[in-house]
Design a binder for these strands. Structure first.
Ligand SMILES: Cc1cn([C@H]2C[C@H](O)[C@@H](COP(=O)(O)OP(=O)(O)OP(=O)(O)O)O2)c(=O)[nH]c1=O
Ligand SMILES: [Mg+2]
Length: 533
DNA sequence: GAGCAAAATTT
DNA sequence: AAATTT
DNA sequence: GCTC
């Protein structure tokens, strides 16, 4: 007896039979639809093999999730936990309600587009609400098969509208509202345009209104605009000025996003690639600044994703303060090695005066040009990267910078020369040059050029802020927003990626690990793989 | 009806 | 202040 | 849109 299913886990099948009050035959081989495909391809019934059989879920919950550990908290603060926040739900990357969650996130993105179009803040909030509802579904331990499972006790953040969508999907397999959005020209174009680095909802809609509906439309129009601009055709200019972000400006970031769009959006960064870059940065730091640095791959990869839209690296040093200047040094050598297409520095200044301790730190350091963050688009080799190539690549980079007369450390440079390197860098002068560098408009030449354009975030923080930076940069975005909301609303504390400030004690709370931060907040620790809200 | 995370930069 | 990014 |  062979049982073919589209469900992902044996537990899901058991659950379904249980709901239907049918006994699951004990002699049934439970296989995925892949078995069926293979049989069809073989034009014969074949014996199911290992890769066809469904698995049981890995025993994740080693922790006895009983009330024992949480009684002290929940009994003491039953009123403080009226309902569960998203940041306490465990949201794994792969879950049991992907299609339902996807439907709700379509409505979230649509609300975001509406926000860009109307500037009505209500739409921004609606997008948040739909994202939260989707996240709730990700935390469910079983696939939702009947709406009655929700009507008894509904998770926080799932309200009337979400229930309506879910009911529709469960009963008919489709939702008229979601399908209308998905099928609309506006939604499709806004989705494609806002995917470009440097294009937000406002510019995307401006372009859409002008008939620029795709990335290639935008690229062509911008190329023509620049040609005509140099040929001083003023009336052409006035037609197309609407295409650019407000004011004049450089638009180098936008130009980078457009020219390298195919690499940046259609070729996601693989884990192996990100790990390679982490190793490269770690070894460069050792060469440039000596031992004591740690470089951690954060962002989506640290939550278990196997691909990402960028590579986020968090840097710190055993000795407080020694991390200062590390980001500048790295950006400088990467630039000198010819790897950088576009890069911007950001300073680490704390505007909220509530973080008084950190405020003083800022004032102490503000005289130095202390950059903590660098956002870059760089060329990374598209050949297979393994650990043996890292050493070679480090050597080659060091050779290039020594040959260029580039200081290994920024300290020796006069202030004027340093400013020339910062805060912005761009390897091309015109959009046409950028497109040429990318290998033409189709961007098809990436195989022959031997490299891919990759977005990279480098963040360096002192040891004392490391735990907060790690928490913040591990994300995801929705998890951060909900955790920070919890801190503010339930604990009267202000949480940022630099620290946690108790507004009543008027004191910031040091932490040396993520676990300590959760303790400060009175929450059970949620490991990164369950922060995929 | 109020609030929705919090930070940075650029024009 | 608006727009974009993390 | 959802919670308080
Ligand atoms: C975009 C964004 C990110 N962050 C934090 C959480 C993110 O995990 C972290 C890195 O940002 P991202 O690199 O934008 O997000 P990501 O790494 O989670 O996803 P991807 O794989 O697509 O790169 O920064 C915020 O706190 N707020 C934000 O608005
Ligand atoms: Mg990332």
């Amino acid at each position: 007896l062979i049982l073919v299913t589209e469900l992902d886990y044996i537990e899901d099948v058991e659950h379904l039979f249980q709901l239907a009050s049918i006994e699951l035959p004990s002699n049934a081989a439970i296989v995925s639809t892949k078995w069926l495909s293979d049989c069809i391809r073989a034009k014969a019934l074949t014996t199911p093999e290992k890769q066809h059989f469904l698995c049981r879920k890995a025993p994740e919950k080693k922790l006895p999730e009983d009330s024992a550990t949480s009684t002290d908290i929940s009994s003491a603060s039953a009123a403080a936990f009226p309902t569960e926040f998203l940041c306490q739900m465990r949201c794994p990357l792969e879950h049991h309600n992907a299609s339902l969650a996807q439907a709700l996130s379509v409505l979230a993105r649509n609300s975001e587009h509406q926000y860009g179009i109307t500037k009505d803040q209500q739409y921004y909030a609606k997008a948040l609400a739909f994202d939260r509802a989707a996240a709730c579904l990700k935390s469910l331990q079983q696939p939702l098969l009947s709406i009655s499972q929700l009507t008894d006790s509904c998770p926080r953040y799932i309200g009337d509208h979400a229930i309506r969508i879910i009911t529709e999907l469960l009963n008919t397999g489709a939702s008229a509202e979601v399908d209308a959005v998905t099928g609309s020209d506006l939604y499709q174009c806004m989705t494609n345009l806002t995917a470009v680095y440097g294009v937000g909802q406002a510019l995307a809609y401006k372009w859409y209104s002008c008939g620029v509906k795709s990335v290639s439309d935008a690229t062509h129009r911008l190329l023509r605009h620049h040609e005509c601009g140099e040929g001083q055709q003023q009336k052409r200019d006035s037609e197309l000025v609407a295409l650019l972000p407000m004011g004049g400006g450089d638009h180098k970031r936008l130009q980078t996003g457009l020219a390298f769009h195919n690499d940046l959006v259609n070729k996601p960064v693989a884990l192996a690639e990100a790990s390679y870059f982490r190793d490269l940065i770690a070894k460069l730091l050792l060469e440039l600044r000596g031992p004591g640095f740690t470089v951690t791959l954060v962002g989506g990869f640290s939550r278990g994703k196997s691909t990402g839209h960028d590579c986020d690296l968090l840097i710190t040093h055993d000795v407080e303060g020694r991390e200062a200047g590390a980001v500048s040094d790295l950006a400088r050598v990467l630039t000198a090695a010819g790897m950088v297409i576009h890069g911007t520095f950001e300073a680490n200044s704390f505007s909220p005066s509530v973080l008084s301790r950190d405020f003083r730190v800022k004032e102490l350091r503000s005289t130095l040009d202390h950059f903590e963050k660098w956002l870059g688009v760089i060329k990374l080799s598209s050949r297979d990267a393994d650990s043996s190539t890292v050493d070679r690549d480090v050597e080659s980079i060091m050779a290039k910078i020594d040959g260029n007369g580039c200081d290994r450390r920024g300290e020796g440079l006069p202030a004027a020369k340093r400013r020339a390197l910062s805060p912005n860098y761009c390897a091309f002068d015109s959009f046409a040059e950028a497109v040429a560098m990318a290998g033409g408009e189709a961007g098809a030449a990436s195989a022959s050029r031997g490299w891919l354009a990759r977005r990279v975030d480098l963040i360096a923080v002192p040891q004392s802020q490391y735990a907060y930076a790690l928490l913040g940069w591990t994300g995801n975005r929705l998890f951060n927003r909900d955790l920070r909301l919890f801190a503010q609303r339930q604990r009267r504390m202000k949480l940022t990626s630099h620290g946690l400030f108790d507004l009543q004690k008027e004191a910031s709370l040091p932490a040396s690990s993520e676990e300590e931060i959760f303790q400060h907040l009175g929450l059970d620790y949620i490991p990164p793989k369950f922060r995929n809200c």
